[in-house]
Each structure stands twice: as C-alpha cells, then as structure tokens.
Design a protein around this nucleic acid. Sequence first.
DNA 1: TTTT
DNA 2: TTTT
Lengths: 155, 155, 155, 155
Amino acid sequence: MAGVNKVILVGNLGKDPEVRHLESGSVVANVTLATTEAYKDRNGNRVENTEWHDLEMWDGQAKVAEQYLRKGSQIFVEGKIKSDTWQDEQGNNRKKMRIRVLSFTMLGSRTGAENGGAPQGNPNTMNQGSPAPQTSASMPSSGVDMDNVEDDLPF
Amino acid sequence: MAGVNKVILVGNLGKDPEVRHLESGSVVANVTLATTEAYKDRNGNRVENTEWHDLEMWDGQAKVAEQYLRKGSQIFVEGKIKSDTWQDEQGNNRKKMRIRVLSFTMLGSRTGAENGGAPQGNPNTMNQGSPAPQTSASMPSSGVDMDNVEDDLPF
Amino acid sequence: MAGVNKVILVGNLGKDPEVRHLESGSVVANVTLATTEAYKDRNGNRVENTEWHDLEMWDGQAKVAEQYLRKGSQIFVEGKIKSDTWQDEQGNNRKKMRIRVLSFTMLGSRTGAENGGAPQGNPNTMNQGSPAPQTSASMPSSGVDMDNVEDDLPF
Amino acid sequence: MAGVNKVILVGNLGKDPEVRHLESGSVVANVTLATTEAYKDRNGNRVENTEWHDLEMWDGQAKVAEQYLRKGSQIFVEGKIKSDTWQDEQGNNRKKMRIRVLSFTMLGSRTGAENGGAPQGNPNTMNQGSPAPQTSASMPSSGVDMDNVEDDLPF
DNA sequence: TTTT
DNA sequence: TTTT
C-alpha cells in the first residue's frame, strides 16, 4: 500500500493551548493555528486568506506546548492528517479533521529583549475586530531544550 | 504574517475521479485518496490504518485526472488544506476540509490499462536518447506532458 | 518521468546575501543557511549539529533577499536540489550541490532592524481590519508584498 | 535555534544498492536516485532534466534496501541533507553532500504479474545510450512488511 | 472506497 | 558563517 500522509505548516497560534491531563497519565494539547497566504486579486489588490488548523499534540509535546506556546506564537509544524468520524444526533455521518503533530519547532524567538523592551507597535490597534492571532511579548526565550519537539505514538 | 500550508500525500484513489465541467468553463475533479500506514501494535500484530482524503483539482489538472486517473491509481500529491465553512439546516456551524491539489504525479507504471482505462500511446517513441529515467512501457500519456501536473489558482 | 525533488529548510543566514546583477538583467542572490539540530548523546549531553546550505535565488526573490535578508535572518525555504558538475584543473569530475530556492518566507519578527538592515515601514497602516495573523510591529516590508516570495524559472 | 532540514524525493534507482556490512555490525546502503523533471523550453519543446542524488541508508533500512530495491525501483524518500567535509590531497577544502534517508517507501509494485509476465515494452530499446535507470521486472511484490521503512540514528 |  |  505504501502511503505518505504529511502536513507542513508555519503559522501563529490563535489562542493559548488548551491542555488536558488525562486520567491515564497522557497529556493532550489542542492548538489552533492560522496560516495566512497573500495574493493579488485581478485588480492588483492584496488579498489575505487565512486557514485555521486544529492541531493535536500529545504527552511530551503537549507539555512543551503548555509551558512555552501562547496565543500568537509562531511555530513550524510537521504532522499528519487524522480524522475522526462519528454519527451526530440526527444519525448523520460526521467527520472532523485534525492535524496530529509529529514535531514542532518554535520560530522567531529573540522577541524584543534586545531593543530594551520597547513595545513593537501597538498590538491593540492592529487587526481591529480580527479573529487573528498576534505576536505578543510572551514568546519564550527559554534556554530550555525544546527547540524541536517530537513524539511517537504508534498511530 | 508569513504562512506555510503544505500537504504531501502518496496513496491510491478510492474510485474514479468525479469530474464536473462548469458553465464558467472551469473543470473540477473530486478525488478520494487513501493513505495507509501500517504499524505493529503492542502484541506485535500488524495493524493498518487508512485515512481518506478529499482532493480537489482544477482545470488542467482536472482534465488530466479525468483522462488518466482511475480507481486504484497511485499518485503523489502536493497541495494545501482548504476548508469550507457554512451553516447547516439546524444553524450549526459546519466545516469541511479538502486538499486543494497544487500538483500531482502519477506513480508506478501501468496506470489502469488493465481496467479499460487510459490509452497507453506508444512509449517507444518517447524520450528517445534521453538521459531521463522511465518507467517501463506503460507510462500513460505518451507524448502528452502530464507527468507532473501543476495548477495556479490565486487561492 | 514523474520525479519529485523537494527541499524544506528553516534556518538562519550565515551572512548577508551576496547579490550579483547580471548583464542579462537577471539578478542572483547567494545565501548560506544554517540548519541546526540538537540531540542528546548517549551520555545525555546536548549536542548540536549544524548543516550549512548554499542557496541560490533569482530575480524577484533575489531582490527581496537583497533588500530584506541579513546575516542572522531566519527563513523558511522551499526549493530543490540542483547540482553543477565540471572538471577541475586535474581533470577530476567535480560536483557542487546547491538549493535552488522556489519560495521563501521570512520568519519571526524584527528581521534585522537592529543591525541597520531593512527599513521597517509603518506597520500601523498594514492590513487594517484584516483577518490575517500578523507578527507584531516589525514585519519587514510593510506595504510591500514579499511575505512569501516565489519564482518560476523553467529549471 | 530551531532548524528544519528536510528532503522529499520521488525517483528511480540508478543501480542496485551498494551495501556494506561494517565490523561494528552496522549496515550501510548507498543508493543513487534520479529525479527527473520535464518542462517546455521557449520553443515549446519538451525538455527533461535529471538530478542524481546520493542516498545513504543505515541498518534496518539498509537491509530492506539490499533485499528489495533494485536498479529502476521507484521510491519515495524522506531524509535530510548531510555533508561531509575534508581536505583533499592538494589541501583544498572539499565537501560532499548526501541525503541521509530517514524513511522510504516503495512505489508502484504490482509490476506486471497480472498481465501474464509479458514484458512491458522493450527496455533495451528505451533510453538508448542513457545513464538512466529503467523500471524492469525486478520490483518486489513481497508480502513482507517493509512498506515504510524508518530509521532513527541520533544524527 | 484504495492498496499490500 | 547563523541561531539558542
């Protein structure tokens, strides 16, 4: 059969990770990631298009996510598409796709310390009324060894 | 903002492409692709897990798909995740994810000849004296240039 | 027939891009990019391993590189492997591999302002009311559309 | 630092794998892989361009390669760029790039058994005088569990 | 629903 | 030669 199912994303978190510590001891983090592409429409105007992705991280990854990722964090993600299927109350077949994260890497870092902590523009005035993530001052600079976080569940 | 949204798949078609020729002149092909991964469970038994992907191809790609792809065809796909959102009859927000194909490549040889599919052309007249690799006799499309099919809608 | 040759890199520039404006009117930028991976050796010590990549960008890309990329800039790159072969003075066959960049994306915020690099423009006028994510204030290029820079030479 | 160094290839082997069993017990397979792209030049003629890649596989992978891969085999490869540097006899710095394979998948299979073993074209008359790989009858159909072969050396 |  |  020989299949390949690979997803590569670079984007920003829409909100802080939602982390659940399961009774089994496993940890799951759910993360929403925006990838935006810009192009010119036929009138030459710049148009932006944002796609929101639902990411699922487990265990070691989830813990790193909990500790270091915040709304606005920019990450590189490698994962695979994974769908859940079920029947809703009306008996209709439903399907939800998620990205099961296999590894991620935090991008950007060095978030402003070297310029004396001066705010970089005023995020409150940017993206007004927007559902989009914003890079804020909360990027970890760590020192911790979590650059590239991998995980290996069997499926 | 700087986003990346990339999907790479290798798998087999679940059925023949469904192709619609729109009044606008555009052509769309919808394709279902299975990617299967195998792993051993904790008892050492081989387990297979299949993920089904809904692919969307446009125009030139769609025509190539219509002509050459068949149920069972193995392809390499590069694309991006693209979701449609809408409200269903109950007023619930619904979301459907698709893979918008940016390019695909037919894999293996003999792509459907045995089920009455694509004509084979005469491979003996292809690539004569060429330094390039060839799959044996049965590459579909012969003189046609569709090995690697690309498309560039703005979004 | 039917080949895929794809490279995906995230790393930092080792030095400012070297840009040549050719008589033909073409522009080439040569860039060195470091990708570093960290792992623990058998004694549990963190070890870093850096790979240096020679990137080649053309025309529109090269101009953007010249204007915005600096030593230390972090970028996401998609490209392909491309080798030159020749004979050296001793008549030995030689081969040099490069990454031909097909598109790149600047990562993080603040891409070099602190070392006198690219002008910042006025981010407050960017993407107003846009649904797209933004890095904070310092995205280079402001109104310029270079987030994701593509190029399409035939080979 | 956060680096990504990823290579994705689909192509055909230029010759049978060269396998060495080291005294340490490790096994290495060296494989050459051709990726060919076709495009039209400015006169509308189809041109093919082949890039040759030197792949390196270790241990479990190498054994699978030894057993199942042959000249002409079509594979999907995921790996990373890895260069060796040294000084040659003249004291010049030399560098050789390889692809360290992280996983590979055999493509195509079902290589002709179902059409009664009839030869698919005459490979001897194709690619005359060419250095290129050819798909021949030697593709394994196995039944063995080697579809997707992974390996995890620390670097 | 594919493929092995 | 980068970055952390």
